[in-house]
Amino acid sequence: MRGKEAKVTIYDVAKKAGVSKSTVSRYLGGRFHELSPKTQQKIKQVIDELQYRPNNLARGLKSSRSYLIGALVADITNPYTTAILRGAEDVCKQHGYSLLICNSDNQPAKEREYISMLQSHKIDGLLIQTTGGNSDFLETLSENGKTPIVLVDRKIPELPFDTVEIDNRGAVMQAVSYLIKKNYKRIGYFTEPVAHFSPRHERYTGFQEALRLVNPSHPSLEDLFEVDLNDESQLEKKLNTFLSRTSKEPRAIIAGNSVIALKIIIKLKEQGYKIPDDTGFLSFDNPEWAAAVFSGITTIEQPTYQIGKTVMELILKRLADNESPVQTISYQTRLIERESAPGR
């Protein structure tokens, strides 16, 4: 009889799951294409039940892997980012990997430093929400064929990397169509700087297209605002510009993400404006606070946790088979209707 504190082994997992040790090894190594969904689910269930934790030192000696995955994100304070990391970390935990998390603060120089640091730790794969300023460096990292790189949210069109994103054009079209149906005549779109960031650019141009398609009576694009959130006065000035020139019309604001949404809400409150009495409001992302502010903020929800899981699953698949074609996985969004845009 093994003692109560004896370490759970791969043999214990295999025996309880009713499979061979090699089958469990294939699961841990991300070779999902070799296993049926039913077998994968059974092994996962047993691993969770037994709280099995692989000996990564021993595994590394046998396989020349570190069992470390790098996660380089643009802004770790963004709720979107933290939800993605939760999904990625859960998959890492299931397969005996550890996640090294770095935050670039959207600074290319800082991103480059962290890529070098992660290389020194001999990471097995990299999840990156890139700044767009280090494509050459990432290309060099991937050329050896041993370090799978999967992009989350932000694309690098010239490089052959797997990418997981949302349908940004469809999402902003959904937002504009919703507000038009609610009889809003002027819609202001506020976003952080667009250059070098593919999702921001796609939403920005998607907003332009949406206005032309669903609101031909007012195709003006003067209500597009790029805002540097490091400059508080700039946000206040552009917000006041929109509010002053739309004072006599039913109007609404779309915030390009939850970070800029919160900044705008604070500015509106400071100046005595109320949502939705003075302006309708809709935001990308669906942070927990969205249900509590005013009477609730209508949001475009992204499947962030699932995006994180998918990114990590792609990395594990690449580690098992790095010859498969590059793919882009695009998720759909969901509009969560609350009271911030009730219509006019």
Rank of each mutant, 00 (worst) to 15 (best):
R245G: 00
D223G: 00
P216E: 07
T246V: 02
L235V: 10
P219L: 12
E209W: 10
D228T: 11
L235N: 06
S247E: 11
L224W: 10
R212I: 12
L213T: 14
L229N: 07
T205M: 10
F242V: 01
D228H: 09
D228K: 13
F207R: 04
L213W: 09
L221N: 03
G206W: 05
A210H: 06
V214T: 08
G206I: 08
T246Q: 01
Q208G: 07
S217E: 13
S217D: 15
L211M: 15
F207K: 05
V214Q: 10
D228P: 07
F207M: 08
A210C: 09
S217T: 13
L211D: 02
D231L: 12
V227N: 04
T205F: 11
K238L: 14
S220Y: 03
F225Y: 15
L243M: 15
T241G: 02
Q208F: 07
D223T: 00
E249F: 06
S220D: 13
D228R: 08
Q234M: 13
K237G: 01
L213D: 14
F225P: 02
V214K: 08
P219F: 09
Q208M: 11
E236R: 13
R212N: 15
L235H: 03
L243E: 00
E236H: 15
L211Q: 06
R212G: 15
L221Y: 06
S247C: 08
L239F: 05
S244Y: 05
E232A: 15
